[in-house]
Design a protein around this nucleic acid. Structure first.
Length: 550
RNA sequence: UGGGGUGUGGCCAAGUGGUUAAGGCAGCGGGUUUUGAUCCCGCCAUUCGUAGGUUCGAAUCCUACCACCCCAGCCA
């Protein structure tokens, strides 16, 4: 619900400038995930950038599955990625697959071979590694480097026709084995993999590498701005070399930006996958996961995530974003979006001793500032629950909730005055007796009384008991990404199961609604909820100046 | 010790030779409040990795140095 002016960044300024100069008419971007895992918050940054730029400048953005490596890819991931991008609020101009360009890519490989720009190498992977040299020493030419174009073509055809086993040969670009940039030391273009492809099926047994496929795919789609993260910067000379050598229909430009580093989270698909496989989380959509699916299930809104992406900016600097920026963005969005209701997580029984009448039904708006969200019915009566933390026998300085001899307002109900407290055998407060002041009913209070505190409550008899899942950071360290095995630093309290007594309306399924439990936090019904068996996931707590003060 | 990058307040981030170095987040102080939330107001970098230099004038230009990140997959 936050409307703000979009912050600028170097890519945005560059595009604005290019359009102003008349260098380009329309921009075309693409979001190119590999379908080998679920999308995470780092991808959200890229999605917002690519789709956001296209939207802003009246251009287009494609969703392209960069499916060049069938070993790790699957339809499950493809489906999840499409759903996640849509859920974030973006629609692609075209749905593309690198696999759909395999024929063209193959023809262009032949083009390189015939021009003497690529050759089939039959060294083993180990030999190739050994001959690549090191960061400080040049590599050694392959003994197969100077084959004739005819011989290379014949061999490449054999590769394609399945006549060679995996690892027996690869196609390499013929650039230079002594290039200081190791990505230019005759990089691999095609490898043999006798496995079927999620999209291309069994049509191929050779597959292009990322380096060979990406730029040409961009060119086929007419991408004007190919945005990627900084680790691909060293690949740009290769990206450009290929575009220059090939008769491509357009000349896209690659621009890099730094990837998102989020405090307390890992954003490596390999490590996220390990968390799932090793059972540290319930799945890719576990609400503790920094995946889009996880954040969705936790109750983060798409708008909140987009606000976050806006706030963090886009630069080339290494950065580590504080978790508070994410949580603050979610709170800021949910504040205006959530249905606000009452839930008591740690119930303490309250008897209103002078309430002898039938329960009173109260019509209470879902949101004090947004009447369009409507209202629901709450019930006030003789037996209530308040949160145990809202009563103190011996209150600390500055405590202004219910105390012996004190008064407090039960929000949307009445002001109540302390009367008595019942202590059980263990010395624990088991019940508090109060008297309500009939003159102080919310909305029609004529009494002129003022109390310092207003607390939330539920009517005992009509309340529903629900499950509550309270989430906290998944790891005990701020930099789990720096650990080889993040599973070893899992926070044992990252998920705490609890119960809550909630007002009647919260016992109903409202799967699309975002909720605020007043004075507690934002919550979302878990998709596993059933009527009579509600489960609420805590998305994020409210800010709590009192807790901080203590 | 090769190549490519990056250094502006606690965390982000504008700024590209000329007003007192934007803004957001966090923090602090105050006001409003039937959520100790929200909302509102105010405060929060004599200084831009360091050291020199050019200039009337530098975060912005030059030189040197320092720190950190990425690259040696038939991953992307």
């Amino acid at each position: 619900m936050i409307v703000s002016e979009k912050p600028t960044n170097f890519i945005r300024s560059k595009i604005a400038d290019q359009i102003k100069q008349g260098q380009i008419q329309e921009i075309i971007t693409r979001f190119p995930p590999e379908p080998n895992g679920y999308l995470h918050v780092g991808h959200a940054k890229s999605i917002c950038l690519n789709f956001g730029l296209a939207e802003e400048f009246g251009g287009r953005c494609n969703l392209r599955f960069d499916d060049t490596n069938p070993e790790k890819e699957s339809q499950e991931y493809i489906d999840a990625i499409e759903a996640d991008v849509r859920w974030l609020g973006f629609e692609w101009a075209e749905l593309c697959h690198t696999a759909d360009y395999f024929d063209q890519l193959f023809d262009w490989a032949l083009h390189l071979i015939r021009n003497g720009d690529a050759y089939v190498d039959e060294q083993s992977a180990e030999e190739m590694r050994a001959n690549r040299g090191t960061l400080t020493e040049p590599g050694i030419d392959s003994p197969y480097r100077d084959r004739s174009p005819e011989e290379n073509e014949a061999l490449f055809l054999k590769m394609r026709d399945g006549e060679l086993p995996e690892g027996a040969a690869i196609l390499r670009a013929k650039i230079s084995m002594s290039a200081p940039n190791v990505n230019l030391r005759d990089p691999a273009l095609y490898r043999i993999r006798h496995i079927s492809h999620p999209r291309a099926g069994d049509r191929w047994c050779i597959y292009p590498t990322y380096d060979y496929a990406h730029g040409q795919s961009d060119a086929i789609e007419g991408i004007t701005h190919s945005l990627c993260t900084l680790e691909f910067e060293d690949h740009r000379p290769l990206y450009e070399w290929l575009l220059k050598k090939l008769p491509v229909p357009s000349r896209p430009k690659q621009t890099e930006f730094s990837r998102l580093e989020l405090e307390g989270t890992v954003t490596s698909k390999r490590k996220l996958n390990a968390l799932v496989q090793e059972g540290h989380v319930s799945g890719w959509d576990d609400p503790r996961m920094p995946t889009i699916a996880g954040m969705r299930r936790r109750g983060y809104s798409p708008e909140g995530i987009r606000l976050f992406c806006e706030r963090i900016g886009v630069t080339r600097k290494p950065n580590t974003i504080e978790l508070q920026i994410l949580e603050g963005s979610i709170r800021d969005d949910l504040e205006g979006r959530a249905h606000k209701a009452m839930a008591v997580l740690d119930p303490l029984k309250v008897i209103v001793t002078n309430w002898d009448q039938a329960p009173l039904e109260l019509d209470v708006p879902w949101h004090p500032k947004r009447p369009e969200l409507g209202s629901r019915t709450m019930v006030f009566g003789r037996e209530l629950y308040i949160d145990r933390s809202d009563f103190e026998l011996e209150p600390p300085e500055g405590f202004f909730r219910l105390v012996p001899g004190g008064s407090v307002r039960l929000k949307y109900g009445f002001i109540v005055d302390f009367e008595d407290v019942i202590i059980d055998a263990d010395g624990r407060v088991s019940e508090v007796h109060v008297r309500y002041d009939p003159e102080t009913r919310s909305g029609q209070d004529q009494s002129g009384r003022k109390v310092k505190g207003t607390i939330h409550w539920v009517h005992a008899e009509s309340a529903n008991e629900v499950d509550v899942r309270m989430y906290d950071r998944l790891f005990t360290v701020p930099d789990p990404g720096n650990y080889d095995d993040p599973g070893s630093v899992i926070n044992p309290e990252s998920l705490v199961h609890g119960k809550a007594m909630v007002e009647p309306a919260l016992g109903q399924l409202m799967p699309d609604a975002y909720f605020q439990f007043e004075r507690v936090g934002f919550f979302k019904q878990d998709p596993e909820s059933r009527d009579g068996q509600m489960i609420y996931n805590r998305s994020v707590t409210l800010k709590d100046a009192w807790a901080k003060k203590k």
